[in-house]
Design a protein around this nucleic acid. Structure first.
Lengths: 302, 302
DNA sequence: CATCTGTCATATCCCAAACATATGGATTTC
DNA sequence: GAAATCCATATGTTTGGGATATGACAGATG
């Protein structure tokens, strides 16, 4: 049995007339009669009662008609689903991000826009460390990851979304905290201070950017502590263990005991926001996400 | 697109290997490759990624696989349903019966047995007068009817199920009621009594049988009242308006003021139980019902 | 009652497409 | 680097779906 038989049978049933059905199907009457007969022979069931003025359905024919329509509809559905999936309008995507990423408004905006644009895609979110996420992308447990550290790994591509300036996070009791958030501070003013940094092996990008900027400003920072997550640095700053440079977007997280101050001068350290994905990922869903991310990053902030 | 494409695709997907799938399908590898390509071309979607060690599904392929399996399963279901319907195991049947029919144990037993034997058949029951039911059978609103009157109508067949003896229904106060239910009465004893009869035009069978039996016993009954339903006669008997002859099975309906007595003698009137159906009804369900009814009527009472 | 009309079935032919065979190209494995 | 494995392409073969012509049958029509 083939879908052809079902299509033909439905037409015959709807017309109650083989000749008219043949016309509708764009073929001649004899082949259609033959196909109907072949169908009945294969089922071992009489579906049609031949009358001098046309045909009528048997009880078995009525039962088969209902099911045949369902089969044809489901076949349509299968095709449509495959096409939607191929266009990236349907499917799954796992989006990873480091703990500091969602503080930048671009990230929640991107995810919201994506869900609105592709309601047929089930997006799961996963928070994790950079290494963990990059590993996940390679193992295909994560499709794209938003991280703050450029990674170099086999089979991955990195799309920079933006680079934001960094600000100084100071303990409230610190002498430099006095000026308030509005007044900016030259980087050189931090010479001799104890720095709390995001640990290098989790992603050398930020670490090296900060060290490099300090060097350019003429001093070597004293590194007091390294933490696994950017967000953790703020806890240590609040505890008075030192100061830190953090991406500007984290300043929206007001913490007791932490004061932020802008930096001024040339060659200031910046914190990038990056998208990591598999090189040549064939998933249209991922391609759509990446494309939307690029557009969102380039577009104006709302 | 044909079911063949779906069957082939499912095999390829399950094997992740065109050559092995071809083997399983009983054909050679090149035609299978061609069919897969044709399917992808028709959908305009890549379903398979060709690898040196086999093939793997794309996201669209996974979506299509799930739906293709559903389509194939539903096609199987359609065939099975048509076959079940053709065997009479699935479908609908409307069974009509006159108000007096269900008092005979055969009728509820037949219906119960049928429902158990054909759980896939939706049986609807309809009570009505004989004329009404016969008309329903002709109009195809009723499929089979259990009646007490042989009918002669175009396009109908009548299957006698059984003929049961009739008993006398007497008002409790009546002189003849004294003997009790165990003692039987000669029909001649009723000469001169007022009879309440089921009205003739609703079905001449019973009426004529009673009149005929009385004549054979040597008297003409006095007909006091005619009622539309057999059951109604008992109400009038209870009210003391006369006596009546009713099918034996109605005696199980004990009514205040009514006493039943058996008849004795030759040529006693009997009440038939008949099945009416359309002549040459093509429905397997109806055929199965009629066949079961014959077997149940012939078989021993439980 | 005979004829005509309309419908489906059967017979025969044709061609497209499904399938088989043979071979080539690409990639992994030894 | 040779062998093995797998899929794609090229070309022939056959099956079966479709077209045309005709027959059979039942109502409608005069």
């Amino acid at each position: 049995m083939e879908l052809r038989h079902l299509r033909y049978f439905v037409a015959v049933a709807e017309e109650s007339h083989i000749t008219r059905a043949a016309e509708r199907l764009g073929l001649q009457q004899p082949p259609l009669s033959q196909q109907m007969k072949a169908l009945e022979r294969e089922l071992g069931v009489q579906l049609l009662r031949r009358r001098p003025r046309g045909v009528e359905l048997t009880a078995a024919g009525r039962s088969f008609l209902a099911d045949a329509r369902a089969v044809l509809a489901q076949a349509e559905h299968a095709v449509a689903g495959a096409r939607r999936t191929a266009r990236g309008e349907q499917g799954q995507i796992c989006i990873g991000f480091t703990s500091s990423a969602p503080f930048h408004p671009l990230v929640p905006r991107l995810i919201r826009t994506f869900r609105e644009a592709f309601p047929g895609v089930a997006a799961t979110l996963e928070e994790g460390g950079t290494l963990e996420l990059v590993d996940g992308v390679q193992r295909e447990t994560v499709d794209v990851a938003v991280v703050r550290t450029p990674v170099e790994a086999e089979g991955l591509v990195v799309h920079p979304l933006l680079a934001e300036p960094m600000v100084v996070a100071l303990p409230r009791a610190h002498a430099l905290a006095a000026g308030g958030a509005s007044a900016s501070l030259p980087l050189k003013a931090l010479a001799g201070e104890t720095f709390i940094l995001y640990r290098r092996r989790s992603g050398p990008g930020l670490y090296d950017a900060i060290i490099g900027a300090c060097r350019a400003a003429g001093f070597s920072p004293v590194v007091g502590q390294e933490v696994p997550r950017i967000v953790s640095t703020l806890n240590l700053v609040a505890a008075g263990l030192g100061l830190s440079l953090v991406p500007e977007s984290l300043a929206r997280m007001q913490m007791d005991g932490v004061v932020y101050r802008r930096l001024k001068g040339r060659a200031m350290p910046t914190a990038p926001l990056l998208l990591v994905a598999r090189r040549g990922d064939p998933s249209a869903t991922v391609r759509q996400f990446l494309s939307l991310a690029r557009k969102t990053a380039e577009g104006p902030a709302p």
